[in-house]
Design a binder for these strands. Structure first.
Length: 789
DNA sequence: GCTTAGGGTTTG
């Protein structure tokens, strides 16, 4: 039985007699008795292997001063835990269902000769709280859930002084928002010293100096805007103001300052007092601080935003480190972004490197080399590759560097960036390891993952796992099946319970979620608009041009200049006659064509043809005879040129290939080389012409719905997997297009009861896009496929 | 038990 909270004494169904404490004895039968008393002592919740939890308390009757009028009670099991959370000293309780034992401490504590043991189903404690407004909501919530960790002890009351009310000499407790801080650093004395400047609603800014022998006992500040609670700090006069210094019994809690973050305190203390009132204070400080523009002081920058000669804070992952010199350590780090400036390579002897000693050239371009000097060298000794770090007041240094104690190892690289953490602690200079569970690390991991996925998409041949091994994917085991039959199945290995769409809307980006939902509708509704052209270089996405636009560009390109044609010298030029029926207009047409002389000599003239002045349909026609058909136009000087890249540059069988306008500057007609496997394909042609080939991708927006909410999710990266099709085939094969249409029709029938639509079991990734100032969270369908229909 | 520092850029 739990502790039952009452706001008036109405114990339904309880007909026990309340007896005075003095009447308790081992000889009495107490099964129909209850005992009422005020809690005058409440011990800590102690965990026990036998009872799970034990808690001792003392309750006293009305005449508390008299010997034997207070009695020890021992509470075992979950009741102890409930009691710990629901009952405070001075609360009035009624205990029943107890057994009476001899108190072993009666002689010493002058309390009742018996004690009460409360355990098992019969034991009950009713607690009286004066009015409903006395009931903090979480106190009520905890009564139902009983889930708070046992370290949250019930409170002696702490008073917190506003920063405008500090009188020198006193020892006080304060709350504040951090506006400046220095990481703990070794002082000249015996301790580590850390420095804080905090403010609160009184707008006073007060400096705090903390001396503790262990860095972990200092407030765990990660960034400006964090909130601290300091217990037992001494107010000392200094200059025209006061400073706060830790005194005996000092303890500190720190919290994220973000308005929507959880209120989990950061502390190294095993036990601490943290009440609903504390939670409220933190929340109030957060919302006050949100309007104070304190974060403008915050200089967190990503490598993608690093500017030469500037100072900034970098949140990153340590990939490798190398002690270069007694006054200098090299940290090789990455933050999931690409620095727009070339990064300086720093060469050090491989045998002093801890962590990965070499990376592929591609990865090497992403890695920032950080040189850490002087006092910070000591701190790097605790760092391990894989750690997530925040480096404060890092400076981006353009140009070459010379490493201390290393001769001529450095190649001159002008204007390449390296990063220095100079000696000293000015401006909060220092390094901190961020815990894995902090939101900034979660965000960092997400960015790294997105980058990794994009990189894979662009360069599937690059597979340097070393960089990615350092961070872990979630534990992998299958999720238990559900009774509903789903039309899709997840192919991921996340061990996640499904969430509702309304829950999902409040999730943290950079995470995966499982949902069960129906397809309300989808976009685009026309299948040909589902296919997009994607440039893996500039990552742009565009529609496939419609026939009207293609015809227009072809028609504009068919104007023949007056001068004589002047094709390249590797071409053989001639004419083909096309019969008239394929196009409107009088009779047939004669087209200028150009063939590769080399291929013609090799008897391979059917493999490549350039056509001047053709229509799209003619190009398609000829693609049944020639392997590669390339529409071209004549420039005024007679030279051959490619058509505008808004139309296909190559017809190959039934396929059309497109190039990226943005990324194919300087594209021109050049002779494709049939080397190696001797096959001329779109890749070889694009390469010869200097064209960045576009990929076909499928992009759909699913409007999902469940009982709780609606939500949009994109199907992009894994659309092939989802429909079990190849995008290239989708572009050319009717049967593949039909398959996709059938699937979508099944999930979302044009008519019929929406409730009867099949359910989809989906894995969704929640993410933010780069530089999205709205901080909007997007969802993408991952690792999900359609079951056989 | 006492002291440490008292924000405000290296000079690699």
């Amino acid at each position: 039985m739990p502790v039952i909270v009452l706001t008036k004494w109405d114990m339904p169904g309880d007909h026990r007699t309340i007896i005075p404490i003095s009447e308790i004895s081992t000889g009495n039968h107490h099964s129909h008795h209850s005992v009422k008393g005020t809690v005058i002592h409440k011990g800590p919740l102690v965990s026990s292997s036998t009872y799970h939890f034990i808690l001792k308390a003392v309750i006293a009757g009305d005449n508390a001063e008299a010997e034997g009028s207070s009695i020890n009670i021992v509470i075992l099991g979950t009741l102890a835990k409930d009691f710990s959370q629901a009952v405070n000293e001075k609360d009035v309780v009624i205990a029943s269902g107890y057994t009476v034992g001899k108190s072993p401490t009666a002689r010493k504590d002058k309390r009742h000769v018996c004690n009460l043991l409360l355990s098992g189903d019969q034991a009950q404690i009713h607690v009286f709280w004066h009015s409903p407004s006395d009931l903090p909501s979480s106190r009520q919530a905890k009564m139902k859930k009983t889930s708070a960790p046992p370290t949250l002890l019930s409170t002696p009351k702490y008073k917190y002084v506003k920063l405008s009310d500090l009188n020198a000499g006193a020892v006080v407790n304060v709350y504040g928002v951090v506006v400046f801080f220095k990481q703990p650093y070794k002082s000249r004395g015996t301790d580590f010293c850390s420095s804080l400047k905090i403010t609160d609603q009184s707008e006073q800014k007060i400096t705090c100096t903390i001396f503790c022998s262990k860095p972990e006992s200092h407030p765990q500040i990660f960034q400006i805007g964090d909130i601290v609670r300091l217990h037992r700090v001494k107010i000392q006069p200094y200059k025209d103001s006061v400073t706060l210094m830790n005194s005996f019994g000092f303890s500190a809690l720190a919290f994220s300052g973000k308005v929507d973050a959880d209120t989990e305190p950061r502390t190294s203390s095993k036990t601490f007092h943290f009440t609903e009132e504390d939670r409220r204070t933190v929340t109030e400080l957060r919302s006050w601080a949100a309007d104070q523009n304190l974060m403008s002081e915050d200089l967190n920058v990503r490598l993608s935003g690093a500017q030469p000669k500037t100072y900034f804070n970098l949140t990153c992952q340590l990939l490798a480190k190398a002690p270069v010199h007694s006054t200098c350590t090299l940290l090789r780090v990455w933050d999931g972004t690409r620095c727009p400036y070339a990064l300086l390579k720093v060469t050090v002897n491989a045998n002093i490197i801890e962590g990965t000693t070499s990376f592929s050239e591609e990865r090497e371009k992403l890695i920032a080399n950080v040189l850490v000097f002087d006092n910070h060298v000591q701190c790097t000794k605790n760092l391990k590759p894989g750690d997530f770090l925040r480096i404060f007041n890092l400076r981006a240094i353009p140009g070459s560097i010379r490493l201390p104690g290393v001769r001529s190892s450095q190649v001159e690289e002008i204007n390449h960036l390296s990063f220095h953490l100079h000696g000293g602690t000015a401006y909060g200079r220092g390094i901190r390891i961020l815990p894995d569970n902090c939101t900034d690390v979660q965000e960092l991991k997400r960015i790294m993952k997105v980058f990794h996925e994009n990189m894979e998409l662009n360069q599937p041949e690059v597979n340097d796992s070393a960089m990615w091994d350092a961070w872990n994917t979630p534990p992998q085991s299958p999720v238990k099946g559900a009774s509903v039959e789903f039309s899709t199945e997840r192919t991921c290995d996340h061990e996640l319970q499904p969430v509702t769409l309304s829950e999902l809307k409040h999730c943290t980006p950079g995470s995966f979620h499982h949902v069960r939902a129906q397809l309300r509708s989808y976009e685009p509704s026309r299948l040909h608009q589902v296919l997009k052209l994607y440039c893996s270089k500039c990552q742009s996405m565009q529609d496939i041009p419609d026939n009207k636009l293609v015809s227009k560009v072809f028609s504009e390109a068919s104007t023949v200049p007056n001068g004589p044609p002047s094709p390249p010298d590797w071409c053989l030029s001639g004419q083909v006659h096309l019969p008239g029926e394929s196009e409107p207009g009088p009779g047939g047409r004669t087209l200028n064509v150009h063939l590769s002389a080399q291929l013609t000599v090799e008897g391979r003239s059917k493999e490549l043809i350039f056509l001047t002045g053709c229509t799209p349909l003619e190009a398609c026609h000829l693609a049944t005879t020639f392997t590669n058909v390339i529409p071209v136009r004549s420039l005024p000087g007679g030279q051959l040129d490619l058509l505008d890249l808004s139309v296909p540059f190559l017809f190959r069988g039934r396929k059309r290939f497109y190039g990226c306008k943005q990324c194919s500057k300087g594209a021109a007609v050049r002779e494709p080389k049939a080397d190696g496997d001797n096959i001329i394909d779109e890749k070889k042609i694009a390469e010869a012409f200097g064209i960045q080939l576009l990929k076909f991708v499928l992009l759909l927006t699913f409007h999902l719905q469940d009982a709780t909410d609606k939500l949009d999710a994109y199907l992009l990266r894994e659309s092939e997997h989802f429909f079990n099709v190849s995008t290239e085939e989708t572009a050319t094969k009717q049967e593949v297009q039909d398959r996709i249409s059938r699937t979508l029709n099944y999930y979302c029938p044009p008519e019929g009861n929406a409730d009867e639509r099949p359910w989809l079991d989906l894995c969704l990734a929640a993410y933010r896009t780069y530089m999205d100032e709205n901080k909007k969270v997007y969802f993408q369908i991952k690792s999900t496929r359609t079951r056989e229909l």
